[in-house]
């Protein structure tokens, strides 16, 4: 198999693990949101990679081209990108409100202020 091979999928796994690790390890709420976003982006790359047909062009009917890339995964990911943007917006808005209410965006400091939370 030549160079690209499964390269995209290794990128997907790497991005996914980086994002997931940031969500778990970072105490800063904004960084958590960005980690979550990287995690979601890895799935976007996954979908777009699987739709690619080797030697295929953009899926537009034109004379002289018979092989097209599958457009459906890309379209699905447009939807997922919108969901991702919405999630990020709601998440960051919540961080703003949390800062107003607690005066901090660090997980451990907030936990102290919250008291009895398990």
């Amino acid at each position: 198999m030549d160079f690209p091979g499964l390269f995209n999928y290794w990128i997907v796994i790497a991005l996914m693990m980086i994002g997931f690790y940031i969500v778990i390890s970072q105490g800063n709420l904004v960084k958590k949101i960005f980690g979550l976003n990287i995690f979601q982006v890895s799935v976007f790359v996954f979908y777009i990679s699987m739709g690619k047909v080797e030697g295929g062009t953009a899926p537009i009917l034109a004379p002289g081209f018979a092989t097209y890339t599958n457009p459906i995964p890309s379209v699905l990911i447009l939807t997922a990108i919108v969901v991702g943007v919405a999630t990020m917006a709601v998440g960051l808005a919540l961080v703003v409100r949390i800062r107003d209410a607690f005066g901090s965006i660090e997980d451990d400091e907030i936990a102290k202020l919250e008291g009895d939370v398990t």
């Binding site: 979550l36 979601q40 799935v43 979908y47 459906i72 998440g91 949390i98 919250e114």
Partner: peptide, 28 residues
């Protein structure tokens, strides 16, 4: 504390949803 509860739900809920999309992608 409703704010932090919503934030934690957002993080876990989005992880869950992303896992779901990944599963659907594999099936596709």
């Amino acid at each position: 504390r409703a704010l932090t509860a919503a934030f934690r739900y957002l993080i876990m809920g989005t992880l869950g949803a992303t896992f779901y999309v990944l599963g659907i992608g594999l099936l596709y």
